[in-house]
Amino acid sequence: MKYTPKELQDDVTISNASPLKEFFVLLGGLLGILLVVYVALGFAVELVVSRLSPEYEEFLGGFFANRYDQGEKSEQERRLQQLLDDLAGKKGKDGRRYRVHVVQHPNVNAAALPGGHILIFDALISEVESENELSFVLAHELGHFANRDHLRGFGRGLVLLVLSTAVFGQDSSISGFFLNSLQNVEVQFSQRQEKKADLRAVDLLQRKYGHVSGATDFLEDISKMDKKGRVAYFFATHPYPRDRITAIEEYIVSQQYVQKEKTALDPLFR
């Protein structure tokens, strides 16, 4: 058979279109779609949260309570519970009793969970210096309950998770990337929540002690502890501590709250 060697002039399969352009077009499109879905679902969560009955919340809270309610309450927990009851009233505004649990954890943090459960990490207890400071932390969490942030946080977190899993499947690198981008949007939202909870906590301190000393102590500690720049805080769920302190101080002035002697911390917490 006669063979005629010939070379192909151009490659029809391989296009010369820039892959970078394709990448950005697709990425932009995807971000746009996700943002729209996310905002829509966010509204849905907001609607559900404002209508969720305390009974159902109690039911949800049951999942957490079982984990933390086990065993005898420690002395510290009993003392904290007293403080909390003083702040919130034996029964809260919505007729619910808030419960506090101490958890072994190296982070200086506390959390509000559905069903009226407050978790205090033991690392936080070792940081506080006065009862007022500890009360502020508890009152801040109560502020989250008053604003129903604890449910909102869970709802929105769930939406994020479902969304990314649905689109990318579990555990792919793109999914990680988009979760992060959306979380950064989320962060702006939660920073507002934190500031609101702070102001509510100041009100509760004033009601319990008749003055607001120690309200900013905890945040002062934190801002000394972490020497991070403002940029890092843009991505954090909590506003820069200094910003929060300023906001609290302005609020104290505007409400004409006074500063007095702080109450010493119960030796139990030493």
Partner: peptide, 9 residues
């Protein structure tokens, strides 16, 4: 959540 020093990590 009261404060982040940890959660910031």
């Amino acid at each position: 959540m009261a404060q982040p020093s940890g959660s910031n990590r």
